[in-house]
Design a protein around this nucleic acid. Structure first.
Lengths: 116, 116
DNA sequence: TTATAATATAAGCATATGATTATATGAGGT
DNA sequence: ACCTCATATAATCATATGCTTATATTATAA
């Protein structure tokens, strides 16, 4: 599949890279690119406090790296596939082990949140 | 040309991304990937103090993103092509306008440092 | 050896960052 | 309406970051 190379401003890109340059946020992006995740799942996966996760998600959301969708009590986050830096982000994530295993682990422990 | 995809640890990669997530360092990488640059050239190009540039270069050198080579009074920095994250770094830089124009500007002002 | 030029390091400081605890908000169920 | 659960926000704090100024290195030149 042919991909048009997107050019970004240096400012835009360094902003994205700074966000991904945090271990926790990079992990979040790994997970939400496997499947949409709600906050409590990410809390489990990352072993951090809920407010900490929420604050990271806020930054990712503000930069439009993730989408937010409420389902009842839960708020699910997913990777925004239409971000101007999507190509680069996918390139980066493609060089990392994906988060499938950990998410399956969650499933096995019956800790995944399934809505409708 | 076929490229073997390199996998990195999440920790390693987030460290690299954090370094590139700074506007100044991203610019430095853009420039040294065009051609090796000495400190005073980067000071000119980036319009920052010499110590500031040196400190950024120190971080990039410590992470082995750049190589250092002394030529007389000058110290030249170049992109390390053999970094484990080279592929990703090139991918990132490939989405940015390169620094050729600015470096040519320097040449035109006779401010490039030419050794041997 | 002394002086000079380029770079590196140290010290100081203001701001940014990421975590924690406490509290607020918002949707669902009773 | 009230309670509960999931999430968001506020307040606080310790540490990290990036810049500046001042000083130390290191190599060349006189």
């Amino acid at each position: 599949m042919y991909m048009e190379k997107t050019y970004l401003s240096i400012e835009e890109l360094s902003t994205v890279l700074k966000l991904l340059g945090d271990r926790t946020r990079l992990d979040i992006m790994r997970y939400v690119s496997v499947d949409e995740c709600c906050v409590c799942e990410l809390v489990e996966l990352l072993n951090l406090s809920q407010p900490s996760i929420s604050q990271h998600l806020r930054k990712l959301k503000d930069a439009r790296l993730v989408n937010e969708k409420r389902k009842g009590n839960w708020v699910f986050y997913s990777k925004n596939m239409n971000h101007p830096a999507s190509e680069i982000i996918n390139g980066i994530l493609g060089h990392l082990p994906d988060g499938k295993k950990e998410i399956e682990e969650l499933s096995n422990q019956n800790m995944r949140i399934i809505c409708d």
